[in-house]
């Protein structure tokens, strides 16, 4: 072994010693979040911002499904659990929960499509290929291009659960990855139908992309309707803990619910629960 090997060895030893020193000197520098893979990317981004604001703190995000979020929280294996749905009454009795964002998905079609709303049954029929032509729904003649999401995506899960479908039953013509690809596919195909996060679709429409959001059973697909809870195809993204969370976790919850976090939430195509911002808007005309 030459000088290079020795240097590397020394550096390695130094690093490991430094690592030991770190964990021994401060106890609360690491925040562990486990659970839903839907919440994880958001928690990760929030974590980065939180780390930047609190030097020395490290936020560790691990996925494994909402059920892991609960299980780890009750065994004390995490500081906060991540759960991508509303809690049941039993769960509410056992855990404390904090909503950090809402996720809503809506059906989109091309701007030239004359339809403005579809019922749940109609959507189900389209995705099972029982309805195969827009004419049957009162639109122009044309074979429907069914756009579905790739396996493992949270939007797919929510869609399947709401319409009570199995992914294997869906007769898709196109399978997409992220929301952007779905929006581009629909924008380029007047016969296509897809479902994407409402936040992403609204941003694209604002930029002039030729798509439109369909109302579901008459309820307009808007971020407003997700906030006030009237839009059916939505869910709350929560952080949970059993008993009171530790101070660092409390600090993180406060940060995740603060207006500072809204931009991060919107960048992830979720809807922020900006009750304060909404209030400010209501007050504005009176002043």
């Amino acid at each position: 072994m030459g000088w290079l090997g020795k240097t590397l060895l020394m550096a390695g030893l130094g690093l490991s010693l430094w690592g030991c020193g770190q964990s021994a000197s401060e106890q609360q520098t690491k925040l562990v979040l486990t659970g839903s893979s839907t919440v994880a990317p958001l928690a990760n981004e929030l974590g980065k911002k939180f780390e930047a604001q609190n030097p020395g703190v490290r936020v560790d995000v691990q996925t494994g499904g909402s059920s892991r979020g609960f299980a780890d929280a009750s065994q004390g294996l995490n500081d906060l659990g991540m759960v991508s749905r509303d809690l049941t009454d039993d769960e509410k009795a056992e855990f404390q929960d904090w909503a950090i964002a809402k996720d809503g998905i809506a059906i989109i079609v091309h701007q030239d499509n004359p339809l403005t709303t579809l019922s749940d049954n109609e959507v189900t029929a389209i995705y099972l290929d029982k309805t195969n032509d827009w004419q049957a729904l009162g639109g122009d003649t044309g074979q429907i291009t069914v756009v579905n999401k790739a396996e493992g995506r949270s939007t797919l899960e929510l869609f399947l659960k709401y319409f009570d479908l199995e992914n294997g039953e869906i007769q898709a013509d196109v399978v997409i990855g992220d929301n952007q690809q779905g929006i581009k596919t629909v924008a380029g195909n007047p016969q296509a139908i897809a479902y994407v996060s409402i936040g992403a679709a609204e941003q694209e429409i604002a930029q002039g992309t030729p798509i439109k959001l369909l109302a579901m059973d008459g309820v307009e697909a808007t971020t407003e309707n997700i906030k006030n809870g009237t839009f059916p195809l939505s869910r709350t993204l929560n952080l949970v803990s059993q008993g009171a969370p530790n101070p660092l976790a409390q600090q993180f919850i406060q940060f995740a619910q603060s207006p500072e976090a809204y931009a991060v939430v919107e960048a992830q195509s979720f809807v922020p629960l900006d009750s304060q911002k909404a209030k400010a808007k209501d007050l504005a005309p009176q002043s």
């Binding site: 074979q143 291009t145 013509d173 196109v174 596919t185 380029g188 195909n189």
Partner: peptide, 13 residues
Amino acid sequence: LVPMINRIQPPGA
């Protein structure tokens, strides 16, 4: 390209 093929035979992709 995809919209062009879509006009010949859907879905185009």
